[in-house]
Design a protein around this nucleic acid. Structure first.
Ligand SMILES: [Mn+2]
Ligand SMILES: [Mn+2]
Ligand SMILES: [Zn+2]
Ligand SMILES: [Zn+2]
Lengths: 136, 136
DNA sequence: GTGCTAGTTAGCAATCAATGCAGATTAGCA
DNA sequence: TGCTAATCTGCATTGATTGCTAACTAGCAC
């Protein structure tokens, strides 16, 4: 994800306005490695800006995602998580505490896929399930 | 997933009763390669047994899953899908029509994972996103 | 076969995540 | 300083799933 300053320009360039709510969310997401849910981010944002709406958090995250600045991660339980890391990477999720971390996978592009039957593949998501160091 | 006959024994062995509803669902899931949602299965079941409850479909699918006879597949959109194929396999999903198919992946156990930071991995889910032959 | 009882079913309420909507507000420009 | 399209908040609604409970029944003991 771009820096808050760059996002400010990018939003204006797209005819979108830059509001205090959006600037706050830019800052909270920039460099964020927690893969937060919309609700988790809403809680964080509410500390600095009481009264901000959960709806606004969803809106802004969706805008960022459609600009390609965020990725949506679905770990198969609970709410979708938002990821400012748009590099080619994958995830490991702790079955116990739900913690999600980035992992970088070598060999993912050389997987041999049998049974495609005419399907063409555009992208690959690899999710590792396990236990984090704390929950081990 | 075991055959309907074997499941009948397995259920009784676990102190669970074998009802007409469950037998129907055993038959509908056995060898089913569609990865149906609970609701899709409910529609199918309703043809042969009008009045069956969606709740019962969820119950039975959950029971089968906790007995290890079914896998739950979350493709990141819409409802969870249920899979009687418990072999080591992965999935490809059509972004256009939502069709989900089995794929067998060679090399998935030899992936090099960087950044685990103390995480231990129990299992791996690989989801390929693309277009089916029909939607290409 | 009859009766008992623990397990099951159907139906509906409740929850959770996410989106739709509309009136009040405001960023950004002239 | 005004204008106006875009945004924000708060609330209603949707969709998937689970919780709850009274009525029902499979499976077993007699
Ligand atoms: Mn990530
Ligand atoms: Mn499958
Ligand atoms: Zn953990
Ligand atoms: Zn398709």
């Amino acid at each position: 994800m771009k820096s808050p300053t760059e996002l400010t320009e990018a939003f204006r360039a797209n005819g979108l306005k830059v509001t205090p709510q959006r600037q706050l969310l830019f800052r909270l997401m920039h460099g964020n490695t927690m893969h937060p849910t919309a609700d988790a981010l809403f809680s964080e944002a509410s500390v600095q800006m009481p009264g901000i709406s959960l709806r606004t958090v969803y809106q802004t995250l969706t805008d960022l995602a459609s600009m390609g600045e965020l990725r949506l991660i679905d770990v198969g339980a609970g709410a979708v998580r938002f990821d400012p890391n748009v590099d080619d990477h994958h995830h490991v999720v702790c079955q116990a505490c739900g913690d999600v971390r980035d992992v970088y996978v070598a060999g993912s592009h050389e997987l041999r896929i049998d049974g495609l039957n005419g399907f063409s593949v555009d992208s690959t998501s690899i999710l590792f399930h396990g236990s984090c160091a704390r929950c081990a």
